[in-house]
Protein backbone atom coordinates (compact mmCIF):
# COMPACT_ATOMS: atom_id res chain seq x y z
CA UNK A 1 0.00 0.00 0.00
CA UNK A 2 1.37 3.39 -0.92
CA UNK A 3 0.76 6.48 1.10
CA UNK A 4 1.41 10.10 0.34
CA UNK A 5 1.61 13.06 2.64
CA UNK A 6 0.61 15.61 0.08
CA UNK A 7 -1.72 18.20 1.48
CA UNK A 8 -4.95 19.38 0.03
CA UNK A 9 -6.99 22.30 1.13
CA UNK A 10 -10.15 20.79 2.47
CA UNK A 11 -11.93 23.84 1.20
CA UNK A 12 -11.20 22.61 -2.32
CA UNK A 13 -13.53 19.67 -1.87
CA UNK A 14 -15.77 21.41 0.56
CA UNK A 15 -16.56 23.80 -2.27
CA UNK A 16 -18.38 20.88 -3.82
CA UNK A 17 -19.99 19.97 -0.52
CA UNK A 18 -21.17 23.36 0.67
CA UNK A 19 -24.58 24.21 1.99
CA UNK A 20 -25.67 27.78 1.35
CA UNK A 21 -22.10 28.77 0.57
CA UNK A 22 -20.81 27.83 4.01
CA UNK A 23 -17.77 25.61 3.91
CA UNK A 24 -17.99 22.42 5.92
CA UNK A 25 -14.39 22.63 7.14
CA UNK A 26 -11.36 24.85 6.76
CA UNK A 27 -8.46 22.77 7.99
CA UNK A 28 -5.80 21.31 5.77
CA UNK A 29 -6.47 17.69 5.01
CA UNK A 30 -4.40 15.09 3.30
CA UNK A 31 -5.61 13.57 0.06
CA UNK A 32 -5.88 10.16 1.66
CA UNK A 33 -8.02 11.46 4.50
CA UNK A 34 -10.29 13.29 2.07
CA UNK A 35 -10.76 10.23 -0.10
CA UNK A 36 -11.30 8.00 2.94
CA UNK A 37 -14.03 10.35 4.20
CA UNK A 38 -15.65 10.53 0.78
CA UNK A 39 -15.65 6.75 0.63
CA UNK A 40 -17.17 6.55 4.10
CA UNK A 41 -20.12 8.69 2.96
CA UNK A 42 -20.54 6.73 -0.27
CA UNK A 43 -20.37 3.31 1.38
CA UNK A 44 -22.68 4.37 4.21
CA UNK A 45 -25.32 5.68 1.80
CA UNK A 46 -25.11 2.54 -0.28
CA UNK A 47 -25.33 0.34 2.80
CA UNK A 48 -28.38 2.19 4.08
CA UNK A 49 -30.04 1.84 0.67
CA UNK A 50 -29.21 -1.87 0.62
CA UNK A 51 -30.53 -2.51 4.11
CA UNK A 52 -33.45 -0.11 4.56
CA UNK A 53 -34.80 -0.20 1.01
CA UNK A 54 -33.74 -3.39 -0.77
CA UNK A 55 -33.42 -5.82 2.13
CA UNK A 56 -36.47 -4.48 3.94
CA UNK A 57 -38.85 -4.17 1.00
CA UNK A 58 -37.60 -6.96 -1.25
CA UNK A 59 -36.26 -9.57 1.15
CA UNK A 60 -38.20 -8.99 4.36
CA UNK A 61 -41.61 -7.72 3.27
CA UNK A 62 -41.59 -8.93 -0.31
CA UNK A 63 -43.53 -5.97 -1.70
CA UNK A 64 -41.14 -5.24 -4.56
CA UNK A 65 -38.01 -6.77 -5.99
CA UNK A 66 -34.70 -5.26 -7.03
CA UNK A 67 -33.55 -5.86 -10.57
CA UNK A 68 -30.92 -4.82 -13.06
CA UNK A 69 -33.83 -4.18 -15.47
CA UNK A 70 -35.65 -2.01 -12.96
CA UNK A 71 -37.64 0.02 -15.53
CA UNK A 72 -39.00 -2.93 -17.48
CA UNK A 73 -39.74 -4.88 -14.32
CA UNK A 74 -41.00 -1.95 -12.22
CA UNK A 75 -38.40 -2.83 -9.64
CA UNK A 76 -35.92 -1.18 -7.35
CA UNK A 77 -32.51 -0.36 -8.76
CA UNK A 78 -29.72 -2.60 -7.53
CA UNK A 79 -27.41 -1.07 -4.91
CA UNK A 80 -24.54 -1.05 -7.41
CA UNK A 81 -26.72 0.81 -9.91
CA UNK A 82 -27.76 3.32 -7.27
CA UNK A 83 -24.07 3.86 -6.58
CA UNK A 84 -23.29 4.45 -10.24
CA UNK A 85 -26.17 6.91 -10.65
CA UNK A 86 -24.74 8.88 -7.75
CA UNK A 87 -21.34 8.91 -9.42
CA UNK A 88 -22.87 10.22 -12.64
CA UNK A 89 -24.66 13.00 -10.78
CA UNK A 90 -21.46 14.05 -9.00
CA UNK A 91 -19.63 14.09 -12.33
CA UNK A 92 -22.24 16.50 -13.69
CA UNK A 93 -21.91 18.80 -10.68
CA UNK A 94 -18.16 19.10 -10.01
CA UNK A 95 -14.64 18.51 -11.26
CA UNK A 96 -13.23 18.55 -7.71
CA UNK A 97 -13.36 14.78 -7.55
CA UNK A 98 -14.90 11.80 -9.30
CA UNK A 99 -15.62 8.23 -8.39
CA UNK A 100 -16.57 5.00 -10.08
CA UNK A 101 -17.10 1.32 -9.46
CA UNK A 102 -14.63 -0.71 -11.50
CA UNK A 103 -13.78 -4.39 -11.76
CA UNK A 104 -11.21 -6.65 -13.33
CA UNK A 105 -14.22 -8.75 -14.38
CA UNK A 106 -16.92 -6.21 -15.31
CA UNK A 107 -20.27 -7.14 -16.79
CA UNK A 108 -20.20 -3.84 -18.63
CA UNK A 109 -16.84 -3.40 -20.38
CA UNK A 110 -16.98 0.34 -19.64
CA UNK A 111 -16.31 -0.53 -16.02
CA UNK A 112 -13.00 -2.24 -16.69
CA UNK A 113 -9.75 -0.56 -15.58
CA UNK A 114 -8.17 1.57 -18.27
CA UNK A 115 -5.09 3.12 -16.66
CA UNK A 116 -2.06 1.23 -15.36
CA UNK A 117 -2.76 2.47 -11.83
CA UNK A 118 -6.36 1.23 -12.02
CA UNK A 119 -5.15 -2.23 -13.02
CA UNK A 120 -2.52 -2.21 -10.26
CA UNK A 121 -4.94 -0.92 -7.64
CA UNK A 122 -7.73 -3.37 -8.40
CA UNK A 123 -5.31 -6.31 -8.40
CA UNK A 124 -3.91 -5.11 -5.07
CA UNK A 125 -7.40 -5.17 -3.56
CA UNK A 126 -7.86 -8.76 -4.69
CA UNK A 127 -4.46 -9.83 -3.34
CA UNK A 128 -4.67 -7.98 -0.02
CA UNK A 129 -8.02 -8.47 1.76
CA UNK A 130 -9.07 -5.61 3.97
CA UNK A 131 -6.55 -3.14 2.59
CA UNK A 132 -7.00 -0.03 0.48
CA UNK A 133 -4.65 1.17 -2.24
CA UNK A 134 -3.50 4.73 -2.90
CA UNK A 135 -1.46 6.19 -5.73
CA UNK A 136 -0.88 9.08 -8.07
CA UNK A 137 -1.23 9.17 -11.83
CA UNK A 138 -1.04 11.69 -14.65
CA UNK A 139 -3.93 11.72 -17.06
CA UNK A 140 -4.23 14.26 -19.86
CA UNK A 141 -1.57 16.47 -18.31
CA UNK A 142 -3.27 16.55 -14.90
CA UNK A 143 -1.93 14.81 -11.80
CA UNK A 144 -4.52 12.87 -9.83
CA UNK A 145 -4.55 11.30 -6.41
CA UNK A 146 -6.40 8.01 -6.83
CA UNK A 147 -7.71 5.79 -4.04
CA UNK A 148 -9.07 2.24 -4.31
CA UNK A 149 -11.47 0.49 -1.90
CA UNK A 150 -12.51 -3.15 -2.19
CA UNK A 151 -16.05 -4.06 -3.18
CA UNK A 152 -16.79 -7.43 -1.57
CA UNK A 153 -19.53 -9.93 -2.42
CA UNK A 154 -21.67 -9.65 0.71
CA UNK A 155 -24.91 -11.22 -0.54
CA UNK A 156 -25.92 -14.19 -2.62
CA UNK A 157 -27.52 -11.73 -5.03
CA UNK A 158 -24.08 -10.27 -5.81
CA UNK A 159 -22.47 -13.57 -6.77
CA UNK A 160 -25.46 -15.13 -8.52
CA UNK A 161 -26.11 -12.02 -10.64
CA UNK A 162 -22.50 -11.87 -11.83
CA UNK A 163 -22.02 -15.62 -12.17
CA UNK A 164 -25.22 -16.06 -14.18
CA UNK A 165 -24.95 -12.95 -16.34
CA UNK A 166 -24.26 -13.66 -20.00
CA UNK A 167 -21.76 -10.80 -20.25
CA UNK A 168 -19.80 -11.64 -17.11
CA UNK A 169 -16.19 -12.70 -17.79
CA UNK A 170 -16.01 -14.49 -14.41
CA UNK A 171 -18.62 -16.99 -13.32
CA UNK A 172 -17.19 -18.51 -10.15
CA UNK A 173 -17.53 -15.68 -7.62
CA UNK A 174 -18.10 -16.83 -4.06
CA UNK A 175 -19.23 -14.97 -0.98
CA UNK A 176 -16.45 -12.87 0.50
CA UNK A 177 -14.64 -12.46 -2.82
CA UNK A 178 -13.44 -9.05 -3.90
CA UNK A 179 -15.51 -8.38 -7.00
CA UNK A 180 -14.13 -4.95 -7.82
CA UNK A 181 -13.38 -1.64 -6.23
CA UNK A 182 -14.55 1.89 -5.65
CA UNK A 183 -12.10 4.28 -7.28
CA UNK A 184 -11.97 7.89 -6.10
CA UNK A 185 -9.92 10.36 -8.12
CA UNK A 186 -8.94 13.87 -6.98
CA UNK A 187 -7.05 16.33 -9.23
CA UNK A 188 -3.97 17.58 -7.38
CA UNK A 189 -3.68 21.02 -9.00
Amino acid sequence: MTSYGTKIKAALLCGAMTLGGTSVAHADMEYQQVSDLLHLVMSSDRTVYTRMIVNRLANQEGVIKASEHFEDEKALVLPAQMFRFGAEMVAEETDAFSYSLLSLWPINKQNAPTTDLEKEGLQYLVDNPGENFYGEEELGGVNYYTAFYADVAVAEACTSCHNDHKDSPKTDFEGGDVMGGVVIRIPME
Partner: peptide, 15 residues
Protein backbone atom coordinates in the same frame (compact mmCIF):
# COMPACT_ATOMS: atom_id res chain seq x y z
CA UNK B 1 -31.96 -10.32 8.34
CA UNK B 2 -31.00 -8.45 11.50
CA UNK B 3 -32.83 -5.65 13.29
CA UNK B 4 -31.37 -3.00 10.98
CA UNK B 5 -31.96 -5.18 7.90
CA UNK B 6 -28.28 -6.09 7.68
CA UNK B 7 -28.14 -9.34 5.78
CA UNK B 8 -26.34 -12.51 6.72
CA UNK B 9 -26.52 -14.32 3.38
CA UNK B 10 -27.25 -18.04 3.37
CA UNK B 11 -23.97 -20.00 3.56
CA UNK B 12 -22.10 -16.71 3.41
CA UNK B 13 -23.24 -16.31 -0.20
CA UNK B 14 -21.28 -19.44 -1.04
CA UNK B 15 -23.84 -22.14 -1.90
Amino acid sequence: LGKTYAEMPARGANP
